[in-house]
Structure formats: C-alpha cells, structure tokens
Design a protein around this nucleic acid. Structure first.
Lengths: 211, 211, 211, 211
DNA sequence: CATGAATGAGGGTTCATTCAT
DNA sequence: AATGAATGAACCCTCATTCAT
C-alpha cells in the first residue's frame, strides 16, 4: 500500500472521528492530507469505499493475539480475564479514534457491506470471550453469569471511557485534546477497575445467590 | 408547545437516530413529518437549533426522579443501587433513540453550546450517583471503588446494549426492528445483570484486597 | 406552466440543438436563461428530466392536425399528400431545433423512457401516413409502394434539409445563422420537390412495372 | 498505422455511435479497447484529434468508386442512377456507425476543422451526383428537377433508415442489435425503393407539368 | 515506447436557508 | 401564520490531460 494512500486513511480516520462520516467532506480530507481532491476517488473510488478501506485496514487490530490468549493452556481463568482486560484496553486505547468510529459513526452508515463487516467482528470477539468464561465455569472457578451482558459490560465500559473523553478531560483535569496524557492516566485505572469488577463478578466465591 | 412543533421533534429524533445529524436533511424531516420545508426554519431557526430544541426537550427525562432517589432516607444503599439500575434502564430503554443520539451522534456536533449542554447533563448524573455510592461507603456498606469508572460501567453497559441492537437481534433471535420485543426481552436480563454486577462490586464483603 | 419554466425549456432547446445534450451543461442553461443553477433541479428534478419535459412539451406539435387530415373525407388522396407535405414541412421548419434534437441527439440518450417516447411518436406518425397511402391505394389512385420506406423518404428529406443547414447556407448563399431567410427560401422549394416526388412515386399511372 | 491505433479508432467509432462524442469519455475508450488511458492522448494528442483521425480514416470510404461511375461512358443515365443507389446504400450500410456519427453527432462538435471537413465531403458528393443528373438531362432522359433536393431525398432516405434502427427493428420484427440481419433485410428493399422513386422522379416521361 | 500517478476544472445534484407574498 | 419560489454554497465525483519514470 502506497504511503500516500496510508496517509489519506490516517487523515480520514482523524476527521471521521472528529466530525463523523457525513460531517466530513472529501474536500476536508484532501485539504488536511495535502492531497489533490481527485486522488481520493482515484485511490478509493468513492467516499464510502474509502470508509470501507479504513475499516478493512484497521479491523484486524484486535485479532490474532486474542486467539493465542484463548488457547493458552498455562494460564488459569482469572489470569486469562486479567490479560483479556489488558489486551482490550491497550488495543482500544491505541486505536481509540477508530474504535469510536466503529461504535458511534458506523451504525448510521447505510451500507450493508460495512454493517455486515462490523457485526462479524463483534460476533467473533464475543465468541472468544465466551470461550474464556465458559472454560472458567467448567473448571469451577467462575459462577453462572450472563455471558453476553458480561461482555457488554467490558466493551461498554471501555467504549464509554474512550468516547466520553471531553467529560473525563474535565473530571481528571487533563488539558483538552492531550490524548496521550489521557491514555496514560486513564488506562491503568481502567484496567484495575475492570479486573476487580470482573473478579468479584465471576468468582464463584462471590455468589450471593441472587440469580 | 404546538402540536406540530412536537411532531417535528419526534420525526427529527427518529431520523437523527437512523441516519445521524449530518446524514439527515431538513427536507427529509419536512417530508417525513408532512410539513412545509420552510416551517422548520420558521419554528426552530435552523437545523442546529432544532437539534438543541430536541436535546432540551428530552434531556430532562432522567432528572427529577433521580433527585428523589438520592435524598430518600428510607432506602439502604443496596436498595438505592437497585432502584438506580431500574430507573436508568427503564429511562434509557424508553428513550433509546434519544439516548443513542446523545451518546453516538452528538459528540460529532461542532456546536459548543450542545457540547456544554451534554457535559452538564452527564456531570449532574455522575454527581448524583457519586452521592449514592459515597453515602454507602460512609455507612460502611460499600468498599472503596473508583466511582467514575463504576458509573462508566453502568452507563457503558446500558449504552452498549441499546446501541448494538442489530447484533443482539441476531444473538437473541429477535426479528429485526421489533424494538418492543427487544426491550421486553433484554431489559429484565440487563437489570438483573447490573444489580448483581454492582452488588459484588460494591459490597464491602467482596473485598479481595486487590486495590 | 410558469413563465420561467417555459423560458428554461426554450433555452435548453436552443443549447441542446447547438451543442447536444451531453455537450450542454446545466450551468450553461442556467447562465443563458439567467436563472439560478438550483432552479433547474427545483423545476425539473434533473437534467434528464428536463429533457423529458422538453420532449413532452414539444412532442405534441405534429399531432392533432394530422388526425384531422387523415379523417378528412372531402380531400382526394393526392390532395391529402400535398397537405401532408405542407403540414410536415411547416411544422418541422417551425420547430427545426427541436426536430434536430429529436432526430440527431436523442438517439444517444441512454434513458429508456425517452427512447420509448420517441419510438411511440414516430410509430404514430408512421401509422397516420400509412392510412393516407392505404386509402389512396384502395381508391385506385396510388399504386403499390413500400409504405415504410416512402415515409422514410418524406421524413428523411426534410430532416436532411433541416440538419444540414450549414451546407445549404453555403449552396444557396444565405448568410450564416439567418434561420428565417433559410426557411423562407427553402420551405417552398422543399414542398414543391416533395409533392412532385410523391406524385410520380404514388401515381398509379407512373407504374413502370419495376416492382 | 499501428494495429493498436486502429483498434482504438474502431472502439471509439463504436462508442461515439452509441453514446455520442460528448457522452463518451476517454476512459470508456481506453477500458473498452483494453488500452492504457494515457495512450490515447499519447497517440492522438487529444479527444478531439482522435475524432478528427477517425473522420480522416473513414471519410474516404465513399470516394473513389464514385469518380469512376461518373465518368463511365458505357452506362446510360438510368443505369448510372441505379448503380449510384447500389453504391451509396452499400457504402453507408457497411459503415453505418460512422455514417451516423457523421450525420448526427458531428454537427454538435464545435471544431471548425471537422465542420469544414464534413462540408467538403458533402459538397463533393453533391457535385458528383449533380453531374450524373445534369448529364441525364442533357441527353434528354431526365426532366428538370431540383437537384439539391433530389440529393437530399437520396441521402435523407438512407440516413433515416440507418439512424432509426430501433424503430425499424420493431417494425420489421428484427431482434434488437442484430445489425447484420437488419442490413440483410433492409438493404435490398431500400435499393428497390430508391431506384423506383428516382426513376419516376427523373424520367422525362413522368413529367406532369407540375413544376 | 508505455504507463501509473497526479491534477485542475468542471460535471450534476443537494444542501440549509431566506424571501415575497 | 404559513408557504412556494428562489438562492448561493457546497456536496461527491468524473473529466481530459500531463508528467515523471
């Protein structure tokens, strides 16, 4: 992939993140990327195909490592959950702009192709986590929980944090748009919170007989 | 507020939910609402002011009851949390379209006024929940947790569920766009899940000394 | 139909005649007609629909009178042919620009709707003339000729004259673009030529037994 | 001329015929001809020069034989007319696409050079036919007719037939775009029709004293 | 000789908004 | 109060062409 093509994708990601897909014009992207307007059609065919290219380029970012984690035999279920939290938090924080696009802007895109792509990714993620929890249950470490909603709590918490940056900038007194400082400050807190939340949630010893 | 004005707001909410703010044209709204195109500028001044009017109209939906809950002296902290979960889940599910607009589409709006409005609402919500948890801690029921991130888990979980409808339609085998069936099936599950998650998370007896 | 709408149609006709449909931009039309660019979409929906509107507006110009002619019982077949020639020549000369668009530019339009519209008009014209000739044959005035090709000779001759103006300007020494002088000079000649051509062609007494 | 150059010309002819000059993009031609886009400018300089090259390549198709015919001393005037009809019909049918481009699309081209080229060709054709008819008149076979309009009838009839294919496909029940079947069926009919039309038109014995 | 990359101009269309009535 | 007509700006995209290699 040519360097210019990559540059366009990066710029598009930034602008889609800031202003949404519909709110970003191809002219915006061309100007910001210091690229001729026609180049974008030349490289990608259309604005929507540019978005598709962006999704295809970034979508793999969460795969791979996850598979290793799931099949690792040396870790006990709690360790796996901890690693899972680390993994997801890091991945999402490192690609927070794209993650925001995925979760907030893509749903409004009318393209069925993109919708299908997104649903597939989410289903695969869900499936991997499901296997970790199920394994923990079989081994007697975890109690019975609603797996889909547990996943929703993990993903939802991280998403909430990444997509409510303006709010948390204020709460934590971080200067606006200093994303690096934000990540550095929030990521460890978030990991600790999620690990603790999931430990008490999953630990069979926590069972209060509520369900 | 005139009936026609309300009708326009309802139609706008539906369309903003489906296609985003930028993806919805004033013509769309006028046609769908069977209203003259010029009426919308006439009533609201501009497209952005229409959105502001929508936010102001709907934003109060979570207030009021929450204040009562916080200051209610007859409930113990766990009961307050349970009520809080019921309250939020119901409110958000009953206004899921508007909630989606708030969490997914509004962040891209460039208007500072709207951003400020949203941040205010979120801060107020956060503050109310913070008071419930702090009270529980003072009374010795709750242990020390990261309050901001706990709120993030509550809001994030609900948001994740409401904004990933297409995915959960598939998982739970609900026919597409049957929002009522979705709410009826998911809401009780979600309430139970959140209550349990928060009970073990907050209960001082669950403290594993992780923090 | 509003005056402005009519004006746009007239301007479009002139420009389509001069430069073809594809060679004429909507901006051309808007500027020439001193009309805002967006008005054209406002009135007609699209460039192609503007063309359709033009066709529908002008297409009736040959109808009506033709029907009267066909059913007129007081004229003998040769008189009917003479009148037919007068009628067609006048009509086409009076709308020569539109006639050129019909015969030369429309065939390249990809729109099936317009193609169908044109074919219908031509078929109806053909049918009317066929009835005149058939009637003349039944009454024993006309001999057996290939009717379709006879019509082709009538229409083709007129079309050739109207669409080869630059050539005939030169031949007849008329100053360029003086359409009025052209029509005044050529129309009578053309009528005489066609009447004579058709008389000898159709007259049963001319039959040389070639067919 | 290189083979590739010829191929480009053939493809261009086909596309100009189908969609007009302005309606055909250089990309269309390049893709259809499986040739690099830049090749076309490389070979021909510009789109308009490509058209000029096409005209120059094909324009000679009617020349040559005609000169022989005019100066042939062994044929009587009627035989010359018959041969002329055969010659023109065959030539035009064999190059019907180019003939259509000449008569329908070229007039909109703004290039003065091309217009001049076309006018020259037409004038030369007119002149040749004029000499045949004049000769027939001098020898006492033909009566006095309007020569220019007689030529218009010949050319116009053939042009009408070749440029109204869609109509005649329908009339004669030929499957669409089967040009070969069309030519095979129509050409003989057309020749017979024109010969008969011209014989009675020109024959001094047909003179009805109308003129 | 040939081509992928790049460009400025212009294409048709839609936008949110305003005006005259 | 209410609306059809009108507008300037901007939309995404494609155009014919050129240039460096």
């Amino acid at each position: 992939m040519s360097e210019k093509r990559l540059h366009i994708l990066e710029v598009a990601e930034q602008l889609f993140y800031e202003k949404g897909f519909e709110g970003t014009s191809v002219r915006d992207i061309a100007n910001t990327a210091s690229v001729n307007l026609a180049m974008i059609s030349y490289y990608f065919g259309s604005k929507e195909k540019l978005l598709t290219a962006l999704v295809e380029w970034r979508a793999g970012y969460i795969q791979g490592v996850l598979n290793e984690l799931v099949t690792d035999e040396t870790l006990d279920p709690f360790e796996k959950i901890d690693r899972l939290v680390n993994l997801y938090t890091d991945k999402i924080f490192n690609h927070s702009r794209f993650h925001c696009i995925m979760t907030t802007h893509l749903p409004t895109i009318q393209s069925e192709k993109i919708k299908q792509l997104m649903t597939d990714i989410k289903l695969r993620n869900l499936d991997n986590i499901r296997r970790i929890i199920t394994e923990g249950q079989k081994k007697g470490f975890f109690r019975k929980v609603d797996i889909e909603l547990t996943v929703a709590s993990i993903m939802g918490t991280i998403t909430h944090i990444t997509s409510s940056k303006p709010l948390y900038y204020k709460i934590y007194g971080i200067e606006r748009n200093n994303a690096e400082a934000y990540n550095k400050k929030i990521a460890p807190k978030l990991k600790t919170h999620l690990k603790q939340l999931l430990r008490t949630h999953l630990d069979i010893k926590s069972d209060t007989g509520m369900l």
